[in-house]
Design a protein around this nucleic acid. Structure first.
Length: 943
RNA sequence: GCGGGGGUUGCCGAGCCAGGAAAAGGCGCAGGGCUUAAGACCCUGUCCCGUAGGGGUCCGCGGGUUCAAAUCCCGCCCCCCGCACCA
């Protein structure tokens, strides 16, 4: 009794954490996850290192746990598995965070204490980037140990380490030598007050705004003044009838030596565009109304006219008018012709305005209208240029013409689709200095966190990585085809993104990181310093053990280790290392490389994972290019998006403390598959904890029972186990952790429930396999259970093999038979009051003919045709489809089981379940019921 | 707009590629068992109808192919994600 009570209470209060900590300690002490080269086949799996501006959260937990499950699974398959981890600290957010903490920013303090669970007194000391890195790297490592990842911790590093920086410098020198680093300029969102580019999270307003590139077309007046018309539709330049200015003041400016007339706002913006800009004076637009300018493309002279709809805060504030295709222009022109007052005010001849006829220059196949702008304006009933509906009208026309339109004969590009002509005109303008570009936000306003309105700034002379390089892209694309991408449809996505990738600025002024070795004013930007660092895990082991020092890491050393360039003697001399050490590092690199699997969140597809591919292809020999990439989705909390900087957030540590490592792991692995998003729901997590506890109890209760004689039921259980092994393995090969956990845990659990309900007493027969099967997912509890009987680590055991000889289809069919029969009987008993006895009659033998026919034809379609047309079966047309379906689903053994025998052996079970007497007795079952019986579906009679 | 993914039973989510079960599993809810009780655990039910294992309706909407469609084909509607220099 005392013993019972004790057991009982330990079960109730079974503390996952206690078990987990015990095994984490043992793993650590035994060093079983430290991977060094040996004669086994290797498997090198990496996960993107976390960025340390906060604690690891449920999102990390998902990606990392998938990685760990795969690592453990592969290890149990016999691979020598390397699963390392480092920390990313490059860039600005950590600095930003330090500043916020220093300033005691209220929101930051709240978010970091409440969601990141940093104690306030500790948080307030994190006022420098160094302290932040120090603190969060320790926390991250602790969290990852708490959840039981099988990481080789001897290889950890941060991207600020001196040795890492040597490695990055080497990489950039080599890229530069290959001509893949180029200089250029590009537009960025910029805060004039902070004097810095702004990132999304630095914005108060306008996070959605993108930078739009307007084409500027230089219309010139006789006195040489340029009216820079900004447009998104340069192809319509062939249809310009006039240009518009708002009747207000403009600026006369000298722009790169030319005289430009632009709005005041535009002038301010121009200052940031990497141009020489000088204000010469102010002019009033009215001085120009009625005067003419020359269309630089058609050489036509067109008048300058006033229009109220012109927005001086959009682009240059000078607009060209294409009334045939632009509803605004059409309406404004019509309106002006009628507006006596305005015409008089500016001394414009009405005849002039009336003479301006729309010039149609685009046609749309299958549609036949004269002047598109006219038609839409009439349909929508717009007559005022300030009508907001014009915006919509413009969009409709634009959309149609862009996608379906073709240029007409009166343009330079007859019969060319509009989408193409647009670029051609743009290029023509730029090439001949007849045009320019003007950057503008797609939405306004865009406001920095400091309250200042942002501008677009063109950063000049910046270093770029030349991803647009065709040769480079081609190689990456070719390699992509050879790679495994999981899930497979992401290969298409990668293909598109590789083609779309443009040159990328790789340098920044501010932040943590490595300086560009040949231009020390610039720092290498954070996504650009994390492309090939998987190779650095090899180096890091030697750095951490003290064998490699920063001064040893000369470029020639990396050349030799990674690329086999140069001679060991030379490298020894240059690096100050012994030949042995150099060779040892090289051997280790050559053993581990390439990366066999990089498993990552889907947010990195369009950036990091691309760069990862590009840089490997550029720098390493082909045999070291990555083998596979897997992508997983996000995690939300009770349906809410997580946010590092705003909350809500669930840290990895908190999840483990609260629910335990195995529960957290199992839950996150099971919550969603592949790139679909998972939702962390407390209720579900608790439910899972119960299931896991139940597993623990069941194993403990049965593990030491002496095996008894093996029954059909036992064979069924063993067979089910084989199916589960097969399913789990197959799922894991495809990285389907949800399916794997479903098969290895939930479905087996259901089978075990049935087995126990059926009175099974030999559960012990499958327990070793079950524990091993679950070990990659819930390693702690599995170690604990395994250790009850064995002296080894289950983590190092061989994963269960699927053994077809143990599959017993007949036993499975028999159990299904019993299950179905039980269900049918109880279904009927619902309708019989005070049922006392149940009689069962199996179908007559001749009905097995159906199965024979089905087997002969081999497919459902054929079988149904043949059987249904058979006279003998015409009374059974209701029963046959489901029978045939079962045949094809459960296999043809189905009709070969001895139903009478199966039923006889289960009578006792039926009686226990149903609490009535059950007889297998044909004579007691009425004729009409017996007639409807089919093989597998006996007649039932309840009295 | 371009590109990728998706709309399934109260919810989450399998199934769809290889057409043949009101459609796995989990959660929730209801009833029963166990228990002094609660929790846990074990059964049963959970679209509608039904005093015999049955019938009806169902997988975003509308058509089509087929003996048979959640699954294949066509059209439409809606939702999510990426479009960068930011980790």
């Amino acid at each position: 009794m005392i013993n019972f009570l004790f057991t009982f209470s330990t079960l109730i209060h079974m503390d996952f954490r206690e078990i987990e900590e015990k095994w984490q300690k043992r793993w650590e002490e035994s060093g079983i996850f430290q991977a060094d080269p040996d004669n086994r086949e290797k498997f090198f799996i990496t996960i993107p290192y976390p960025y340390l501006n906060g604690n690891l959260h449920a999102g990390h937990t998902r990606t990392f746990t998938i990685g760990d499950a795969v690592a453990r699974y592969k290890r149990m398959l016999g691979y020598n598995v390397l699963f390392p981890m480092g920390f990313h600290v490059t860039g600005t957010p950590i600095i930003g965070l330090a500043e916020l903490i220093q300033k005691r920013d209220e929101r930051t303090i709240r978010v970091y204490t409440q969601y990141h669970n940093v104690p306030e007194d500790v948080l307030l000391t994190l006022t420098t980037p160094e302290r932040i890195v120090e603190y969060f790297s320790k926390e991250a490592e602790r969290a990852m140990r708490m959840i039981g990842y099988s990481i080789d911790w001897r290889r950890k590093f941060t991207t600020m380490d001196e040795c890492y920086q040597k490695f990055i410098e080497w990489q950039y020198w080599r890229l530069k030598e290959k001509g893949l680093i180029v200089k250029g300029s590009h537009p960025v969102r910029f805060c004039p007050n902070d004097n810095n580019p702004v990132e999304d999270h630095d914005l108060l307003m306008g996070e959605e705004a993108t930078i739009v590139e307007y084409t500027v077309i230089k219309f010139k007046s006789e006195d040489g003044v340029i009216f820079p018309c900004a447009t998104l539709r340069p192809e319509t330049v062939f249809g310009v009838t006039n240009i518009w200015l708002k009747p207000t003041k403009y600026v006369l400016a000298k722009v790169n030596g030319e005289m430009w007339i632009v709005s005041f706002e535009a002038f301010e913006k121009l200052k940031y565009f990497d141009k020489k800009v000088e204000k010469l004076g102010e002019i009033d637009a009215k001085e120009y109304f009625g005067r003419f300018v020359e269309n630089p493309v058609t050489k036509e002279k067109v008048p300058i006219l006033p229009a109220e709809f012109v927005d001086t805060d959009n682009a240059t504030g000078v607009v060209m008018s294409v009334p045939a295709h632009a509803p605004y222009d059409y309406v404004a022109l019509k309106q002006l012709a009628k507006d006596e007052e305005t015409l008089k005010k500016y001394g414009i001849d009405r005849k002039l305005v009336e003479s301006l006829k729309p010039i149609v220059l685009i046609k749309i196949e299958d549609e036949d209208y004269e002047v598109p702008a006219n038609e839409i304006v009439e349909v929508m009933g717009i007559s005022d240029q300030k009508d907001e509906a014009l915006e919509k009208a413009t969009k409709i026309i634009y959309k149609k013409e862009y996608h379906k339109g073709v240029m007409l004969e009166n343009t330079f590009f007859p019969n060319i689709p509009v989408a193409e002509a647009k670029d051609k005109v743009h290029d023509y303008l730029i090439k001949n200095n007849l045009g320019d570009v003007f950057y503008e936000f797609s939405e306004k306003p865009v406001v920095c966190r400091c309250g200042t309105k942002c501008v677009v700034k063109v950063v000049k002379d910046q270093w770029f990585i030349n991803y647009s390089n065709e040769e480079w892209k081609r190689k990456v694309l070719e390699h992509l085809e050879r790679m495994t991408i999981i899930p497979d449809y992401y290969k298409k996505e990668f293909r598109n993104k590789i083609e779309w990738l443009k040159d990328k600025a790789c340098a920044r002024r501010k932040g943590l990181g490595t300086r560009i070795p040949w231009d020390k004013e610039w720092l290498i930007e954070s996504l650009s310093d994390s492309t090939i660092y998987m190779s650095y895990y090899v180096i890091a082991k030697f750095v951490n053990s003290g064998k490699l020092k920063p001064e040893n890491l000369v470029p020639e050393f990396f050349d030799y280790v990674f690329l086999s360039k140069g001679s060991v003697e030379e490298v020894a001399k240059k690096s100050g290392l012994s030949k042995e050490v150099i060779e040892e590092v090289k051997r280790e690199f050559e053993y581990w490389y390439p990366v066999d699997l990089r498993s990552s969140g889907k947010d990195l597809v369009a950036n990091h994972l691309l760069f990862f591919l590009f840089h490997h292809v550029a720098l390493f020999p082909e045999k070291y290019w990555p083998k596979a990439i897997a992508v997983n989705g996000y995690v939300s909390l009770e349906g809410q998006k997580m946010s590092k900087s705003k909350g809500p957030l669930l840290t990895m540590k908190k999840a483990v403390e609260e629910f335990g490592a195995d529960v957290t792991r199992l839950y996150i692995l099971h919550a969603a598959e592949y790139d679909s998003d998972a939702d962390w729901r407390r209720k579900d997590v608790e439910g899972l904890a119960n299931n896991l506890r139940r597993f623990y109890e069941i194993v403990k209760e049965n593990y030491f029972k002496e095996p008894k004689e093996v029954t059909t039921l036992d064979k069924w259980l063993i067979s089910r186990m084989q199916k589960a092994i097969k399913e789990t393995r197959d799922a894991m090969e495809k990285l389907q952790t949800r399916r794997a956990v479903n098969a290895a845990f939930f479905e087996l659990m259901n089978d075990v429930r049935w087995y126990l309900r059926r009175g099974g007493r030999n559960l012990v027969l499958i327990l070793d396999d079950w524990i091993k099967l679950l070990a990659p997912f819930a390693p702690h509890i599995c170690e604990e259970l395994w250790s009850l009987k064995h002296d080894s680590f289950v983590s190092l055991e061989r994963y269960p093999e699927y053994d077809e000889s143990k599959v017993d289809e007949k036993a499975e069919v028999a159990e299904n038979y019993i299950r179905t029969l039980l269900r049918d009987i109880s279904e009927i008993m619902k309708f019989v009051k005070d049922a006392k006895e149940v009689y069962i009659a199996v179908a007559e033998d001749w009905k097995r003919e159906v199965a024979k026919i089905a087997k002969q034809t081999g497919n459902m379609k054929e079988a149904m045709k043949v059987i249904m047309s058979d006279e003998r079966f015409k009374d059974l047309k209701k029963e046959i489809p489901s029978f045939v379906k079962r045949l094809f689903k459960e296999g043809f053994d189905f009709y070969e089981i001895d139903e009478r025998k199966v039923i006889s052996e289960a009578i006792e079970f039926f009686e226990k379940e149903l609490r009535v007497k059950v007889y297998l007795d044909e004579s007691k079952v009425p004729e009409e019921k017996r007639k409807a019986a089919m093989p597998g579906k006996p007649a039932i009679y309840v009295v």
